[in-house]
Amino acid sequence: MTLTGALDVGMPVPPDERVIDVRDLRMRYGTRDVLDGVSFTARRGEVLALLGPNGAGKTTTIEILEGFRMRSAGEVSVLGVDPATAGERWRARIGVVLQSWRDHGKWRVRELLKHLGTYYAPYSTDRIRRPWPVDDLLDVVGLTELGGQRVMRLSGGQRRRLDVAIGIVGRPELLFLDEPTVGFDPAARREFHDLVHRLTDVDDTTILLTTHDLDEAEKLADRIVILGQGRIIADGSADELSRRVAGETEIRWTRDGQRFVHSAVDATPFVRQLFLQYGEGIDDLEVRRNSLEDTYMKLVLESEGEAR
């Protein structure tokens, strides 16, 4: 099965709503095509997850959109501007959460956020007040108590939250998150997800994130774009993607205290039959369509099969 024909279906995004508009993006290193005709859009307020195996071109794509890397060919528009030639005003509307290591170690948390905020002040508008006030920001990322701490003394998770705070200090209209929750414990991950929801719901921020955590992608993303071998192999909501991939649905239930598991291509008639047969005897019914992980694995394997 090929998905290429299905890609243009889905809702067309009106041009003025397109925060990211990528058309036929190509990137070539020597004779190797890292990106081979990538096209997708993101609309205002949308959370878009970019998935794909290592080497599929995720990082290259995101770095081109961030304006950190030149492309070989194709059209790219981010907030209506070509990142390759965009100026400081454009930069002020973009947030990038970088994977920090040990930079600014001697700075204190509050001092660093306050200082970095001043760079955005000239770009404040009536609609978006820049920068984000430091106290509110510390509160949002849960670092209020650590405001006076030196950055080098933060734990890994705290540092990551500081990275996020730095990424959003300028109240970006578009935020790039490259593998944001690597190294987070489950509680920190949950808090981070809440923060992302807050950003999109309250501030209408558009977010492009890459991740290897499919569960995270499913929870956060309105839309998922899967890259494989430098091409887009799927584009849609988690639900749409799983519908597109032929797969079996898992049905679990109990009857007379005994557990049953069954896989069916079409779950609805099966469940109907089940109730006709046993009625009240059925308990704890669960119907699970392909998980995003199943869908993802199928799509990636398929695209690799085609390439060979």
């Binding site: 961030e66 950190f68 400081e88 005003r89 930069r91 002020a92 973009i94 990038v96 970088l98 994977q99 920090s100 290591w101 040990r102 930079d103 600014h104 970095l116 760079y119 955005y120 000239p122 770009y123 730095i166 300028g170």
Partner: peptide, 20 residues
Amino acid sequence: VEREDGTLLRAKATPNGMSS
């Protein structure tokens, strides 16, 4: 050192960051 530890990249990600 600051290129290696990412300070410069942060400057690049900030408006007018490099000149500052």
